[in-house]
Design a binder for these strands. Sequence first.
DNA 1: CGTCTATTTGAATGTACTCAAAAGCGGTGG
DNA 2: CCACCGCTTTTGAGTACATTCAAATAGACG
Lengths: 192, 192
Amino acid sequence: MTDLLKQNLTRHAALTPEEIEQFHLLFEPRFVKKKSFFLRAGAVCDSEAFVVQGLFKVYHVDAHGFEQVLYFAMEDWWLTDIDSFVNQRPSELFIEALEDSEILTISKPSKDLAYQRIPALNKLYRVMTEKTHVALQRRMLANLSKTADQRYVDFIEKYPRLAQRLSNVQVAAYLGISHEFLSKIRKKISRH
Amino acid sequence: MTDLLKQNLTRHAALTPEEIEQFHLLFEPRFVKKKSFFLRAGAVCDSEAFVVQGLFKVYHVDAHGFEQVLYFAMEDWWLTDIDSFVNQRPSELFIEALEDSEILTISKPSKDLAYQRIPALNKLYRVMTEKTHVALQRRMLANLSKTADQRYVDFIEKYPRLAQRLSNVQVAAYLGISHEFLSKIRKKISRH
DNA sequence: CGTCTATTTGAATGTACTCAAAAGCGGTGG
DNA sequence: CCACCGCTTTTGAGTACATTCAAATAGACG
């Protein structure tokens, strides 16, 4: 299912069919079982990945052992710790499969090579990074201004299909609240 | 003082001296008085700017009239609403000078032209966007896990020179807390 | 010196957390 | 078919964190 990858690449910037073909050949398929990891804190993120099938959680574990979820990645999303991948330094993030998953990976050397051979990739990843940055800015502002109730409602409205596949513990770690409190929010909302 | 701009450009990616010269000629100096705006919500962000001298606040105003600060920009930082500038759609942000300031602006048409003529700019802005994205990810995780006390201490340790130039109201709007509560935090911390 | 703004303080309230326990809900094996 | 296990979700009581509103203080500046 490399078609999904090609579609994804096409969406962000104009690459020629040849460029897309050349680039996508650098990806290798890989299967990741539920509860196993694409990346662990302490390791260097030596490859990026595109999710063909399945679901991942990208998260940090703080000094008290609590998890904070940076984002979830399901089909058609990308997996990477930008800082660790770009600068080849130890990661502070975990990327864990929440379902049996299939991904397409590209190694750091392959991507560096691709940047040299296909300059248009710089524009592609510039545009992709801009989009994810805008999304994160919106989330940041929402977290600064909104109450947990509102953030939960926003989340299930914005990502209904994703929310169905997540446990409340996962959602709570994304919203930055305890799962007990999320349970109370759900109860309050359900009796409309 | 376009030297500061040239230094900034050089820091992120390798451009030739000619490319830097060519690019920086597209910038025009502009002075913005304290309390006046580089951008207002509702308007389209038709130019980006580099801060040569002064200080700006980039913020959102929510439905209740409260401000949330996305970031502050002093000398050597950039001013833009990426979403509005890239997609030329109405902004939801305000960018206001907190001091009398001097900036270098580049219009949307000029930047588009520059991308065409100087392909290496795609890499430059890819790298710059990656860096600001990583910084925002860290802030997001910190906000999800840390208490206001800790976030305040982190802020003044990370940006000591910036913090000196900001009122507590501004800092509170960045941390996502009321200024009264920030005052109580400061009191608690001061009696070591 | 007076005025304007920023900061501090206090009391009451709301939001969210912690800890402990109970209830629900698939599977799996007997 | 049901009894049990492990996991998720719910519930409740007590506590901590943060807000609101109102008023008092403190600074800055013409």
